[in-house]
Amino acid sequence: MATLDWQFTDAGDATLVELVVTSDTDTGIELTSNLTPVWPPRRHSRPAAGWNENGYEGSVTAETPLVLGYASPADPVEPPATVAATGPVSNGRDGSPTPEELVRSLGEAGPPRDAVPTPTAPSTGADWPSTTLPSEESGPDDTGVSDHRAERSGPEDGMGVTEGDRATADAPPAPAVDPWFDALERRLDAAERLGAVETADEARAAVDAVGGIDAVRRLCARLDADRTRCDRLAGVDDRLDAVEVPLSALERLV
């Protein structure tokens, strides 16, 4: 029987989750995060061994607890993950390593991201499929403009920015911004419930629902950060309302 102990650290725009999995027998485990999306630890730009988009699969021994850590833009949830035993651990492995394991252990030979100039236009095929922005690597600060920080992706890790996307300033911002808006709405829901309490019992219930008074403090700190960001957004919003590109006139001129 595997049991889970956990601890949260507020890292501003992300929640860092520390997990300790203990078991009285050697067993395989499957850990599913209740905080989504999961930003796993990375080795050579891809998720470390055992990590996937939902959590982690691995094994724990009776002698040594399994210690794991990951991040998520979501607010803390108690418990942060559920752990399920998946049966006895298979000893050793047969066959060759997978390509993924080789890349993780030996590293990519490609140039570092900063060494690659950003082209001013897609080199070929402007109609390449536009894929999602890297939800695992971009925190809420990545406002969706595909810049040099946007990692290209392998098909297996669910991210994906093509050169074409990097090259176009009009890449759709929604995939990067949406998780932040979703999290903001959840925070506002929780804050409004806390603000609406009228009796001591309701207050205690509302605080417990959020995860304790420490969680309320974290929520307040996050809302402060949200206000700062939204102030900036409001300035953009006014300009967005006011601006108008004389497209038809420009089309006639060029």
């Binding site: 030979a109 690659v116 082209p119």
Partner: peptide, 9 residues
């Protein structure tokens, strides 16, 4: 850029 975008795996 092509090397960078390629997934060796």
């Amino acid at each position: 850029a092509g090397v960078r975008a390629a997934d060796p795996a």
